[in-house]
Amino acid sequence: MSVIYILLAISIVVAVGFFVAFIIAVKSGQYDDSYTPSVRMLFEDELVKEKSDNSILTKKD
């Protein structure tokens, strides 16, 4: 039974270590995307379809 407590303690220490490493990597800019903004102008824009305005009804005289 004591082995379970030791493994639980070790797993919590490892999890906290990975969490701290992740926070440090995020704060240092490791996950900032510097490539996409430079090539964004090369991508074609999606065509925007105009919405037909059905709310305005016109009467024909």
Rank of each mutant, 00 (worst) to 15 (best):
I56W: 00
A25Q: 12
A25M: 10
A25C: 04
V48T: 13
K51Y: 05
S34R: 10
S38V: 08
I10K: 06
I23D: 04
L8A: 14
D32R: 14
V13F: 10
S55G: 14
T58E: 12
V48N: 06
I12W: 12
V3S: 01
L42T: 09
F43H: 13
I10C: 03
F43E: 15
Y31V: 07
G17I: 05
K27Y: 04
V20I: 14
D45I: 02
L8W: 01
A21N: 15
L42Q: 11
G29T: 10
V48F: 08
S34A: 09
A15G: 13
Y5I: 01
S2Y: 00
S38G: 06
T58C: 01
S11N: 14
I10F: 10
V48D: 11
I12E: 06
R40P: 00
F18K: 10
F18D: 02
V16F: 11
L57E: 12
F18E: 13
V3A: 01
D61R: 14
R40H: 03
V48M: 08
S52C: 00
I10V: 15
A15R: 04
V16S: 04
K59D: 07
E46M: 07
S28R: 15
S52D: 09
S38A: 13
V39Q: 09
E44I: 01
N54R: 04
Q30Y: 14
V13G: 02
S38D: 11
F18L: 14
F22G: 09
I24N: 06
V26N: 08
G17T: 13
K59Q: 08
G29S: 08
V20L: 13
A15Y: 10
V39Y: 12
R40L: 13
D32N: 15
V26T: 03
Y5N: 03
K60W: 02
F19K: 05
